[in-house]
Design a binder for these strands. Structure first.
Lengths: 335, 335
DNA sequence: TAGAGGTGCTTAAACGTTTAAGCATACTTT
DNA sequence: AAAGTATGCTTAAACGTTTAAGCACCTCTA
């Protein structure tokens, strides 16, 4: 790599100090009373030499790296990939660059990725917290880092967050199924103490209770650590063992897709033998033999709000903002 | 944010020079003849103060940022998302961090993202080049940057690259269809002068010629700029207007998925009325009413090879490495 | 006993910015 | 004519590392 062109080179060329060059190239020539002629000369030489400021030096000196650390569960998961895309675009608009990491829902990986982000001195964090990462978040908070939690949060941690109103989403789905005449509804969720799952369960449970279907409540907890095949088997067994089940709600995207494999293999008629409600949307939902009714999250809004909020904090905002955004419910053939 | 702990703090604490601290903490205490006792003390204080080196300062001084710029077409596309995941993991293993950008196949966005990468002084680039970005790559090459092209390349540019052996992949697919008794095979590709598309077309055309089916050759070029709906419409019209068509090959992932929507809407029986071969795999392929026969790319191998090659170049390798990796052909119900 | 060599440390510059402080010089004002 | 102020620039330190060069001091060898 050829030697970088630095302010020093421009300064030398014009026999002036680097201070002057800095003033002009950061657009503070008026404030710093640089003569118009000199400003022009500096800009010209900068252009001629194809000068590019070193973000590195700027960051070292100024403290800000204009970098955001984004910790997701898995970037290969379409839900997070889309979110990442939106966040990157939004961040780029504001001059920020995004470092992405995938925790795979492991607290260990989460810790190690957060450490990397710290080493890189990111200005702020957007985090989809995994189970068991509460202490990590707390430790970041103690050090006064800018943080926005995404998709999930810890109720006893006073952080900004952006997520879905999970209760409402599932409550509407449950109500819809009941109105359609289903009442033996089973819900598949990930075994998780995290708020979103809890809220989704609550949305289901309370709605069932409210319509006097308490005795029909059935929540199946699928361990996240299961392989795809094990999850599929658990779903199949559940549906086979209780033939009264006439509807299922899958509490998230990957469970929905795995669930579809299970139902497909069981050869169940949808929605006659079983109605299905999925989560987050996917092309798969369109191609399943009964196009799926599903809950859609407002991805764009979630992405933009999280970046906005984070940059707000980075720039000094102290107010804690907690967004619970509204879902969209798409009714199609599976219910 | 609390003030950072720097080497200076450690040095002050022990009344020594920062040089000594640096020698110890970068593990060169022997080489630099630091006494064992002193080394121990320094390590202890570093730990007590929870010292974290500043990558920023290190980079500024040393030149290397331990950062890779990864330019994709679109991170929200599952193919690229999976690739990104593999590349990140592989890079992380070697101490590198990855900056990701999505060009949307636009040369302008590509230029602007590459500029961002340059500003951030990435040590190397992994690039899925878009049409019209040849000059950008050339300009990077002139400045002696470490570059690996991914998925595509420019034949007259002497860069390292990692991609699929596209010719073989489509040749096998074509042969398979013909063996199954299809001979009016149409291929849908993106309008693109890029090598991979050209090679895929060549794989189809030469195979057809080789089996005396020259007059049946039909390649439909879909403009990338079309909306999803326009693409779908073009595919539908093609299949409706020529009722002799008995098989289709979709030359990439997104065309396959859009094509499936089209075929689904036309209500064609698969493979009786039309056989289908898809590209890259997707859960959708499993749920289509005839699970799809498709060409799979060796994602993991592609990802790892590209990182390996790039880091090789960063570390001084001058040899140009060009990989054309082998596909896997999955035969299922659609053909 | 002088020189060679080893040991354990320090000094100071360098990477490329930003920025507070200061210094001439010229022009106004009273 | 002295004081004030505006103009246009420079100086030098700072951010947190790395590293070449050098300085004492000690021990060995011939």
């Amino acid at each position: 790599m050829r030697k970088r062109v630095s302010m020093k080179d421009i300064a030398k060329e014009l026999q002036v100090s680097t201070a002057l060059v800095s003033y002009v190239l950061t657009g503070r020539e008026n404030e710093k009373r640089v003569s118009i002629e000199m400003a022009e000369k500096i800009r010209k030489v900068a252009k001629d030499l194809n000068y590019k400021p070193s973000q590195l030096a700027r960051s070292l000196r100024g403290g800000a790296t204009m970098t955001i650390g984004l910790l997701l569960a898995d970037i290969a998961n379409p839900f997070f990939a889309s979110l990442a895309r939106i966040i990157e675009d939004e961040a780029a608009k504001r001059g920020y660059v995004v470092l992405i990491g995938s925790s795979d829902e492991s607290a260990e990986k989460s810790a190690s990725l957060l450490d990397t982000f710290i080493d890189r001195q990111v200005d702020g964090f957007i985090i989809v917290p995994t189970e068991g990462s509460k202490e990590q978040i707390e430790s970041l908070m103690e050090k006064n880092n800018a943080i926005v939690l995404l998709d999930r949060y810890f109720p006893d941690l006073n952080t900004s967050h952006v997520c879905l109103n999970n209760y409402n989403a599932i409550a509407e789905a449950t109500t819809h199924l009941i109105q359609k005449g289903h009442n033996k509804i089973v819900m598949f969720v990930y075994q998780s103490s995290q708020i979103p799952m809890q809220e989704r369960v609550r949305g289901y449970v309370e709605t069932m209770k409210g319509l006097n279907l308490e005795r029909n409540i059935k929540v199946v907890e699928v361990p996240y650590s299961f392989t795809k095949l094990e999850k599929e088997r658990l779903i199949k067994m559940t549906l086979q063992n209780d033939i009264n089940i006439d509807a299922v709600i899958f509490a998230n995207n990957s469970l929905t897709i795995i669930g579809l494999y299970a139902i497909y293999q069981l050869g169940l008629k949808v929605p006659e033998e079983i109605a299905i409600i999925g989560f987050d949307g996917s092309e798969v939902f369109d191609f399943f033999y009964a196009p799926l009714t599903y809950v859609e999250q407002p991805l764009v809004e979630i992405g933009i709000k999280s970046v906005e909020t984070l940059i707000g904090i980075i720039e000094g905002a102290t107010e804690i903002k907690q967004f619970e955004l509204a879902h969209t419910f798409h009714i199609r053939n599976s219910s």
